[in-house]
C-alpha cells in the first residue's frame, strides 16, 4: 500500500460515512408514531389499516424485548419511541417497573381489555392472547389419559415416561409456564412437577415447530405448545397428525400469555400513541391478531375460523406481576431440577 491508496482508503471511508449520513440513515424519523416492537408478526398490515383510517403514519423497528428495553432506558427522554410493543406479560410488567411506560387514563381500553390482561395503573394493555397447552399424537395417546384438573402437573406421572417433548429452559414460554406453576402451587410443589418431567426423560426441543413435527412423526407422544404454532402448521399441512387438548379445564384453566403495548414515558406524541393502542384493542383487534392465529383479548372480537375450531376454553387468570417477579425463580428452579 503506497501513500496514495492509504489516503484513498481514508477518503473513501469518509465519503461512504457521509453517504450513509446523507441517506438520512443516521437517525431521523419520518412518521407520526415510532414503535419499538419485540413482536414481529405482520405488523405492517395492522398499522397500514390504522393509517388508512386515521391518517396517522406509523413506523417501527423490531428487536428483542430485553435489548429494546435497555435502549429505551439509555435513550431516556430523548427516545424517538412512542410505543413499546412486546411479548410476554413479564416483559410488560418489567418495563412498567423500570419506569419506562406512561400511565394512561383510557375508558376505551378499560372497557375493551379484561382486567387481568392489563396493568392496574394503565401502563400497559394486553392486545393478543396465546394459550400454551398440551398437544398429542392421537395414534399414541387417548385424551382420557390426561389429568383434567392438573394437566401440566399430571405429565410428571411415570406413565408418561419416554413420551414427553418440551421446549428448552432458555425459552420464555417454558419460563412463564413454570412461573405460573410456582404461583399456583408454591415453589416446592412446582419443583416436584418439573423434576417429574425430567424423571420422565423429557426430550428438549429448540422450537415449537420442531416439537410439533416430532409429535407428528411419532417420536414424541405428547408436547406442550403455543396454540398458534399448531394452527399455523395445520394451515400449511391439514393432515398433520397432532391434536390439541385444553389443559386443566376442571382446575385452574389453561396457561395463557399476552402480547401488549404501553405508551413510552418519553413519547412526544402520547395522544396519537394512545389512539393507536385503543384502535388495536377495538376495531383493529382482528387485523392485529388473526394473521398469527392468536386470540383477541377483546371479548367483542371473534377468533379467526381455524382456531375457533379448537373450541372454547377456560383460561388461567393472568397474573403479570407473578409472571415477572417469579420468572427469575422459574429459571433457578429449572436449573435445580436439571431441566435443560
Amino acid at each position: 500500500m503506497h501513500p496514495r491508496p492509504l489516503i484513498a482508503a481514508t477518503a473513501g471511508l469518509t465519503v461512504l460515512t457521509a453517504a450513509l449520513t446523507g441517506c438520512g440513515i443516521i437517525g431521523g424519523q419520518s412518521a407520526d408514531l415510532q414503535i419499538y416492537s419485540a413482536r414481529h408478526y405482520d405488523l405492517e398490515g395492522a398499522f397500514g389499516q390504522f393509517t388508512d383510517e386515521t391518517g396517522i403514519t406509523v413506523e417501527f423497528i423490531s428487536g428483542d424485548d430485553a435489548e429494546l428495553l435497555e435502549r429505551l432506558k439509555a435513550e431516556g427522554a430523548d427516545t424517538p419511541a412512542d410505543i413499546f410493543l412486546t411479548v410476554d406479560a413479564g416483559n410488560l410488567w418489567n418495563a412498567a417497573r423500570q419506569g419506562e411506560l406512561a400511565e394512561l387514563d383510557s375508558p376505551v381500553l378499560e372497557d375493551a381489555v379484561p382486567e387481568d390482561l392489563r396493568d392496574a395503573q394503565g401502563q400497559w394493555y394486553g392486545l393478543a392472547m396465546r394459550a400454551r397447552t398440551v398437544t398429542y399424537n392421537p395414534d399414541a395417546v387417548d385424551p382420557a389419559e390426561f389429568d383434567t384438573t392438573e394437566t401440566y402437573a399430571g405429565l410428571a406421572d411415570p406413565k408418561w415416561k419416554g413420551r414427553l417433548c418440551m421446549r428448552d429452559a432458555t425459552s420464555a414460554y417454558t419460563q412463564s409456564l413454570v412461573a405460573s406453576l410456582i404461583d399456583l402451587h408454591g415453589r416446592e410443589e412446582a419443583l416436584k412437577i418439573v423434576q417429574g418431567w425430567v424423571a420422565n426423560d423429557v426430550e428438549i426441543m429448540g422450537n415449537d415447530v420442531l416439537l410439533l413435527e416430532a409429535i407428528d412423526a411419532g417420536s414424541c407422544d405428547v408436547g406442550i405448545n403455543n396454540h398458534y404454532y399448531l394452527a399455523r402448521t395445520l394451515a400449511e399441512n391439514p393432515d398433520l397428525n397432532v391434536d390439541l387438548f385444553w389443559a386443566s379445564q376442571e382446575g385452574a384453566g389453561t396457561h395463557v400469555n399476552i402480547s401488549g403495548a404501553g405508551v413510552v414515558e418519553g413519547s412526544d406524541n402520547a395522544e396519537d400513541a394512545q389512539r393507536l393502542i385503543e384502535w388495536l384493542a377495538t376495531d383493529g383487534q382482528n387485523a392485529f391478531v388473526d394473521g398469527n392465529h392468536e386470540y383477541p383479548v377483546n371479548p367483542a372480537a371473534a377468533p379467526e375460523p381455524l382456531i375457533a375450531e379448537f373450541g372454547e376454553f377456560k383460561r388461567m387468570p393472568l397474573n403479570a406481576e407473578a409472571y415477572g417477579d417469579l420468572n427469575a425463580e422459574a429459571v433457578d428452579l429449572l436449573a435445580e431440577a436439571g431441566y435443560k
Binding site: T21, I25, I26, G28, D78, P80
Partner: peptide
C-alpha cells in the same frame, strides 16, 4: 438537546 441524533440509534 445534546447530540440527540447519536442517541436515537444511528448507523454511526
Amino acid at each position: 438537546g445534546g447530540t440527540g441524533i447519536l442517541v436515537t440509534g444511528s448507523v454511526l
